[in-house]
Design a protein around this nucleic acid. Sequence first.
DNA 1: CGGCTCCTTGACTTTCCTCAACATCAGTGG
DNA 2: CCACTGATGTTGAGGAAAGTCAAGGAGCCG
Lengths: 243, 243
Amino acid sequence: MANKFIQKLQGFARLTDKAVLALEAATSRPVDFEPRQDLIREGDRPGPVLVVLEGWAFRYKALPNGSRQIMAFLMPGDACDLNIGMLEEMDHSIQTVTPAKVVKIAGETMAELMDTHRSIAKAMYVAQLVDEGTLRAWIVSLGRGSSAERAAHLLLELYVRGVHTGMSRDDEVELPLSQVVLADALGMTPVHINRVLQDLRQSGAIELQRKLLRIRDPAALTRISGFDDNYLHRKLRKPASKH
Amino acid sequence: MANKFIQKLQGFARLTDKAVLALEAATSRPVDFEPRQDLIREGDRPGPVLVVLEGWAFRYKALPNGSRQIMAFLMPGDACDLNIGMLEEMDHSIQTVTPAKVVKIAGETMAELMDTHRSIAKAMYVAQLVDEGTLRAWIVSLGRGSSAERAAHLLLELYVRGVHTGMSRDDEVELPLSQVVLADALGMTPVHINRVLQDLRQSGAIELQRKLLRIRDPAALTRISGFDDNYLHRKLRKPASKH
DNA sequence: CGGCTCCTTGACTTTCCTCAACATCAGTGG
DNA sequence: CCACTGATGTTGAGGAAAGTCAAGGAGCCG
């Protein structure tokens, strides 16, 4: 079975059989990481492209005062920036949440893959644009949402992404994030996210326990969050069949 | 004289003379836009790459409740996303602030430029990474900053970017943004940004009047904002000489 | 059991928003 | 030249949202 990375790329462009084989070869040797381990740190000289095959991680920036802001979650299949090797040093860090399997694809290997298989190049470009759209949606949520809106938006984003990558079944998705992590992502305090989550539970919109999120009332949650999945560019998946 | 776009790219990679000529040809026919005019709207089918040669614009997303969140400012020399043409539809809009001169470079033209002149490709990739870093810094600022921190951070970002593109002289930079626009960028109300700016003025960190920003005490402003220009990746400019 | 980490609750404080009024300025047209 | 208009900036008073501090509870694991 193709891994989550390949599955994700297939959602963005129709990959040839040869392309799939090449990708499988390039991702056949994942490395295991513990939870709470930095994959790469701010200030490091970036090297290969990192691809998370299993487990969760997040991009974050540690602040002088000891707090941190999480800017994105990496779920299985997600990769870090394509051209990251061109930068002198990382401007943020990436840390695992759960035990994870991660593959490092050398810059030259990646370039060769994209050169040889244009369908891979296209899929990678689209993936990059989607990541950027997600960043922008995050900004909108942080900037203009109430705490309940922000929380609902994040939960929905993670749920929808989970659906796309086949990690959810029905209305459930595994969500291995502590409230501290959620707070760091949403720009609020752990105490406050706790209260917000309780409100969402009591309103009947969600169930959340034991690392398992269940969307009980998608309409309500969408209404609360103002969520608009436009930025995830799912529509791209249909035109892929036109090629 | 090369336009701001070319100047900016030259900061990211050493462009050959031929590359510069090709870029000049591609950007020789700018179109004029009025202030407050949308260059492209959410939902539009994206086409050519947009490049702002003169004037200011911003990316924003309009929200159902009538407010909007600004996610990035485009200064002279800035371009919108490189691969934007691959998306089905825009997930945000771009609007001018001032009168502006904008060039549209067709996707094929851009692809050809990057194919023929690898230095252009490199510079465009780096520009894209810097934009993404800027987005992430924006998230950090929105998520973790007090209102004063956020405001100080944005002013510093714009000032530093102004310096890089030769739009500032000494400690001054033209800042044609109303307090309403600043509020929409910083996720706060116009009333509040007004008070924050007054505090910054009274503390002696800045002067701001008549669309002219003067940084009086850079150290103080940096301290207040927690600003770290890492994400702008200025260091790239030096290694460019190694190529 | 003890020692973790994570979650929950309550009381109090601070920050920021809301609403509302007024001031200032530039541009427009009489 | 002045009155009018619209956009922008400023100020004040009161209220809602979120943070802080502090303590205790629940689950997990050696």
